[in-house]
Amino acid sequence: MKISHSYIKWNKQLRWVGGFVFLGILLFILFCMNVCIGTVSISIKDIGAILLRQQNNEMFYNIVWKIRFPRAIAAMVLGGGLALSGYLLQTFFHNPIAGPFVLGISSGAKLVVAVVMIVLVKQAVEINSWTLIVAAFIGAMLAMGLVLLMSGRIRNMSRLVISGIMIGYICSAITEFLVAFAEEDDIVNLHSWSMGSFSGITWDNVKIITIVVGTTSILVFFMAKPMYAYQLGEGYAKNMGVNIVLFRILLVLFSSVLSACVTAFAGPISFVGIAVPQLVKVVLYSSKPILMIPASILGGAVFCLACDLLARTLLAPTELSISAVTAVFGAPVVIAVMLKRKG
């Protein structure tokens, strides 16, 4: 009995370590692939040379350093943020099918960003990254507020999700109208953004994304302990000394910041928030937040790098919207989760 118990323990820890190593290796490989593969293929060896300016090829340098690197990093960081945002919402609602996209939060952010962009472009004001984030955050919070209001009245999670999807549709529809009616040249980009895409991301964007997602992730990591307690339900969490009101506010705030940041730069991306935490849970075979938080970030990064690679290369030179790819891989996961749940 004693031996088998310690064996099980050891086995578990091995699985955790193995899971992280696996995700780490996958992340490294995919990052390299994202930098190398594209309309112009560049070998790993050349990458080093290009970055060190040993090869005097300005075009290659631009492709690698000014386009592919920031894009890959953005996909990584935003993917991580998105998955974490989903994990926070799942914790909040005690439900595995919650996520920023299905609850309409991404679409709310998208709508406000679109409005701000159109208004500012009309007045010829330059748009900086922070403006976008703030706009997206306001949109995310508005949608989140709406969802929370409904969740007070709708106890049934599937109905809440359906309501969230409806909010998402309404926001998306309004955004479509706005984009269609805005004729300015500058808004051409808006279209591909509103469908979800990692293209056109600059180093400046990357800096801000990393600051926002990084800081939030660290703060979230410090909430791992109350999140663990919260899994037992509010009654027990309260008895363990968790300040429930503050805790819930922080969960909502952080998940909104994360999904707002993603939406501001890459548009609404579907299913990453739901699917990735579910997948890494299977990989680690644990639901401990202290493992799930870093694993979700890693997993989201891997997932988005892979999906962006496919989005860019599958029908090259045409680029697919990232959501199309994430949906193909993410939606089946959601279906699997629903099937696994009884009732």
Partner: peptide, 23 residues
């Protein structure tokens, strides 16, 4: 009493259904 102080003094067993995963 702060939440933590109280938690060291008082323990509970409730009728709430505890829905956990992989616990």
């Amino acid at each position: 009493l702060s939440g933590k102080e109280l938690a060291k003094k008082m323990a509970v067993v409730l009728t709430d259904q505890v829905k956990t995963e992989l616990f």
